[in-house]
Simulated assay, not measured.
Amino acid sequence: MASNEEMSTSFGSAAGTYETGRPDYPIQAVDWMLQPVVGGERSIRVADVGAGTGKLTRSVVELGAEVVAIDPDPKMLAVLREHVHGVPTFVGTAENLPVPDASLDAVLLGQAWHWVDPDAGAAEAARVLRSGGVLGLIWNIRDDSVDWVRRMTAIMHGSRAEQMLGQGVPPVAEPFGEVEDAQWRWSRAMTRESLLAMARSRSYLITAAPDERARVEAGLHELFDELGAVGDAVVQLPYVTRAYRALRP
């Protein structure tokens, strides 16, 4: 099995698949993370950290904020620029943000905080946020309370994010205080090909040996046949979006 570091930096090799397979975020959830800093005459300034192909970036843009996208992988940022125009992009990590001190109203991470050192990430977010700024964390998690989704997860293997969130609120170090949380339930219409793209965009499968990848995909094909996800037939994949926010003193 690949190391956590190898997994965390693997997505660029499957950037197009990631863009196809991963869902967008409910706009209500993104708005909730930003609510503590909205208001006033000026547009708020936001960094989307671990921006990937821009799934979260486009929601922030839709809400009218000024946003910069930061990711460690230039290949992911290249796909972001194809889909979200006019957003500045920078190579960087949550632990080393290419942003001046106290220059942002919000630092947001989508599907990313589980790859971050929570102490270093919190300290760096505090550096770039203004007083009263918000650190927002969000994940789209498949709803494993549904039997076939739980079986699919078992075939694909659980992710680092799912393991972390299974233990409760994600760790956020000082100087941030109380972490608020909220969640939204929804579903995404998926075909067999988009379900496969979702699976192939996961770090476990990207970094797996060819025989393990073939074993996982064979199990998925068997499950999808059972579900009737054949050709253009659509199934609804249920999700729970979990969002968290904490304020900088």
Score class of each variant (00 low, 15 high):
residue 76 M to G: 05
residue 38 V to I: 15
residue 160 R to S: 13
residue 150 R to N: 13
residue 225 D to I: 00
residue 96 N to G: 13
residue 84 V to N: 09
residue 31 D to S: 15
residue 180 E to Y: 12
residue 226 E to Y: 00
residue 184 W to R: 08
residue 61 V to D: 09
residue 77 L to C: 03
residue 54 G to S: 01
residue 190 M to C: 14
residue 19 E to M: 05
residue 6 E to T: 14
residue 243 A to N: 12
residue 74 P to N: 12
residue 176 F to H: 11
residue 56 L to Y: 06
residue 121 G to A: 09
residue 247 L to H: 10
residue 219 G to Q: 09
residue 116 V to E: 01
residue 229 A to T: 00
residue 205 L to T: 13
residue 163 Q to W: 13
residue 233 A to S: 14
residue 43 S to P: 12
residue 231 G to R: 00
residue 206 I to R: 07
residue 238 P to L: 00
residue 9 T to D: 12
residue 126 A to W: 04
residue 122 A to L: 02
residue 201 S to Y: 08
residue 235 V to R: 01
residue 193 E to Y: 07
residue 2 A to M: 01
residue 39 G to C: 08
residue 165 L to S: 05
residue 112 A to T: 15
residue 216 V to S: 02
residue 40 G to D: 05
residue 43 S to A: 15
residue 194 S to I: 07
residue 64 G to F: 05
residue 140 N to R: 04
residue 197 A to W: 02
residue 174 E to L: 13
residue 18 Y to S: 01
residue 28 Q to Y: 06
residue 18 Y to R: 02
residue 32 W to Y: 07
residue 198 M to I: 08
residue 49 V to A: 01
residue 175 P to L: 03
residue 184 W to Y: 11
residue 29 A to H: 12
residue 224 F to D: 00
residue 182 A to I: 11
residue 171 P to M: 05
residue 114 H to F: 04
residue 200 R to D: 14
residue 206 I to S: 08
residue 210 P to T: 04
